[in-house]
Computed example of a mutant assay.
Amino acid sequence: MPVVFRHQDFRFYFFSNEGNPREPPHVHVLKDGIDAKFWLRPDVVVAYNDGFDARTLRELTEIIERRRNEIERAWNDFFG
């Protein structure tokens, strides 16, 4: 599970096997056993949420929007 970055106690990562065919670029976020998945394009949106409250989801969306290029670069570097 490649970790793209950490922010506070959140881990932003993707799985090394993202489906067959591979899903479009996205990022998973984990903290304290709670996780969510965010699509990166065309806009950053929540794909699923397993327990984060609305405020946290908004904050995570903002972080991902600011760092979307970094996340996509890590995705493309890993998957080629």
Rank of each mutant, 00 (worst) to 15 (best):
Phe14Cys: 07
Phe15Asn: 03
Phe15Lys: 08
Phe15Arg: 07
Phe15Ala: 02
Phe15Glu: 11
Phe15Gln: 04
Ser16Lys: 14
Asn17Tyr: 05
Asn17Met: 00
Asn17Leu: 05
Gly19Asn: 09
Gly19Pro: 05
Asn20Thr: 13
Asn20Gly: 05
Asn20Phe: 15
Pro21Tyr: 14
Arg22Asn: 07
Arg22Val: 07
Arg22Cys: 01
Arg22Ser: 07
Glu23Pro: 00
Glu23Gln: 12
Pro24His: 05
Pro24Thr: 10
His26Asp: 06
His26Gly: 01
Val27Asn: 03
His28Pro: 07
Val29Pro: 05
Val29Ala: 06
Leu30Thr: 01
Lys31Leu: 07
Asp32Tyr: 09
Asp32Val: 07
Gly33Cys: 13
Gly33Leu: 09
Ile34Phe: 02
Ile34Lys: 03
Asp35Gly: 05
Ala36Gly: 06
Ala36Thr: 01
Ala36His: 05
Ala36Pro: 04
Lys37His: 00
Lys37Gly: 04
Lys37Gln: 08
Phe38Pro: 00
Phe38Glu: 02
Phe38Gly: 00
Phe38His: 02
Phe38Ser: 02
Trp39Thr: 11
Leu40Ile: 12
Arg41Ala: 12
Pro42Ala: 06
Pro42Asp: 05
Asp43Thr: 14
Asp43Leu: 13
Asp43Pro: 01
Asp43Val: 14
Val45Ile: 14
Ala47Cys: 06
Tyr48Gln: 11
Tyr48Leu: 08
Tyr48Pro: 00
Asn49Tyr: 04
Asn49Ser: 06
Asn49Ile: 00
Asp50Glu: 15
Asp50Pro: 05
Phe52Pro: 03
Asp53Ala: 04
Asp53His: 02
Asp53Ile: 04
Ala54Arg: 12
Ala54Asn: 13
Ala54Ile: 13
Arg55Gln: 15
Leu57Glu: 00
Leu57Cys: 01
Arg58Lys: 14
Arg58Tyr: 13
Glu59Cys: 08
Glu59Phe: 13
Leu60Cys: 06
Leu60Met: 12
Leu60Lys: 01
Leu60Ala: 01
Leu60Thr: 00
Thr61Cys: 08
Thr61Leu: 04
Thr61Arg: 09
Glu62Ser: 13
Glu62Trp: 12
Ile63Asn: 00
Glu65Thr: 15
Arg66Met: 14
Arg67Leu: 11
Arg67Ala: 06
Arg67Gly: 01
Arg67Tyr: 12
Arg68Asp: 02
Arg68Glu: 05
Asn69Met: 10
Asn69Cys: 07
Asn69Gly: 02
Asn69Ala: 14
Asn69Leu: 07
Glu70His: 12
Glu70Leu: 12
Glu70Trp: 11
Ile71Ser: 02
Ile71Leu: 10
Ile71Thr: 04
Glu72Met: 15
Glu72Gly: 07
Arg73Cys: 10
Ala74Tyr: 06
Ala74Val: 09
Ala74His: 09
Trp75Thr: 00
Asn76Ser: 09
Asn76Ile: 03
Asp77Leu: 11
Phe78Asp: 05
Phe79Asn: 10
Phe79Ile: 05
Phe79Lys: 11
